[in-house]
C-alpha cells in the first residue's frame, strides 16, 4: 500500500471515530443561522436579502471551530513526525490530510445547506449559486486554514489566534460568494463571481502546498 493511500485510509477511519467533533461544528452552523431570523425578524424579504451573507459568515465561523482538528491531534501525538520520516513527499501527505479534512468537515456542510436555504427563504437560483460557491469556496477555506493551523498547532492557545489570523484572509471569498448569490437573486448571471472564486482556488491550490509544508516544518522544529 502506498504511503498516501495508507494515510487517507487512516484519516478517514479516525475521523469517523470522533463523530461528535464532526457534528458539533455542523450544529453550530445551523444554530448561528437560526439566530438571525430571531435577531432581525422573520420577514421573508429581509431574510432573503441577508441570507447569502448569513450562510457564508456562519460557514466561515463554524469552519474555524473544526479547523484545529486538521493537524492538532497528529501533532500532539507525534504522528506528524512519523509522517515526515516516511518514504513519501511530506507536501503530498499534508495535502492529503487537508483533502480528508475537507471531505469530512465541509462536504456535510454543503449537503445540509439546502435545508438552511429553506429557512432563510432563498429562491431556487440562489440555492444553486449557494451550492456552487460553497463547492468552490470551502476547499479554499481548508487550504488557507491549513497554513494557519500548521503555524499555530504547536501553541496551546491557538483557537482565538487562529480566528484572528484567518478571518481577514477570508474576506475576498465572502465578498465574491455573497455577491454571486445576490446576482442569482436578481436573476443576473453570476458566472464572473464564480470564475473569480475558481481563480482564487486555483491560485491557492498552486501556492498553499509550499506554505503548509513550511508552516508544519516550523511547528515541528
Amino acid at each position: 500500500m502506498s504511503p498516501y493511500a495508507a494515510l487517507l485510509k487512516r484519516e478517514m477511519t479516525l475521523a469517523f471515530r470522533q463523530k461528535s467533533e464532526l457534528i458539533q461544528p455542523l450544529v453550530f452552523f445551523v444554530l448561528v443561522i437560526t439566530l438571525f431570523p430571531l435577531g432581525v425578524g422573520p420577514s421573508p424579504d429581509i431574510l432573503q436579502r441577508i441570507g447569502p451573507g448569513v450562510i457564508w459568515v456562519a460557514a466561515i465561523l463554524s469552519s474555524l471551530l473544526g479547523m484545529e482538528r486538521l493537524f492538532r491531534d497528529d501533532f500532539q501525538h507525534g504522528w506528524l513526525e512519523q509522517l515526515a520520516l516516511s518514504d513519501a513527499s511530506m507536501t503530498g501527505l499534508l495535502m492529503l490530510k487537508v483533502l480528508s479534512h475537507w471531505l469530512v468537515s465541509f462536504v456535510p456542510l454543503v449537503i445540509i445547506s439546502p435545508l438552511l436555504a429553506l429557512l432563510l427563504n432563498l429562491t431556487e437560483p440562489m440555492y444553486w449559486a449557494l451550492m456552487a460557491t460553497l463547492a468552490l469556496g470551502t476547499p479554499l477555506v481548508s487550504l488557507v486554514g491549513a497554513i494557519a493551523v500548521g503555524l499555530t498547532v504547536g501553541l496551546n492557545r491557538g483557537g482565538v489566534l487562529l480566528a484572528l489570523l484567518l478571518i481577514p484572509l477570508f474576506i475576498p471569498l465572502l465578498i465574491f460568494a455573497t455577491s454571486a448569490i445576490e446576482s442569482a437573486a436578481m436573476q443576473l448571471p453570476y458566472g464572473p463571481q464564480i470564475a473569480i472564486i475558481a481563480a482564487l482556488l486555483l491560485t491557492t491550490l498552486a501556492l498553499s502546498p509550499f506554505a503548509i509544508n513550511y508552516a508544519v516544518k516550523v511547528s515541528l522544529h
Binding site: 479516525l14 471515530r17 470522533q18 491531534d73 500532539q76 501525538h77 507525534g78 504522528w79 513526525e81 512519523q82 520520516l85 516516511s86 518514504d87
Partner: peptide
C-alpha cells in the same frame, strides 16, 4: 527514511 526507525518523546500512538 527507508532505513530509519525513530521513536521520540511523543509516541505517535493514536488513543482512538
Amino acid at each position: 527514511a527507508q532505513q530509519l526507525v525513530y521513536i521520540g518523546h511523543k509516541s505517535a500512538v493514536n488513543p482512538l
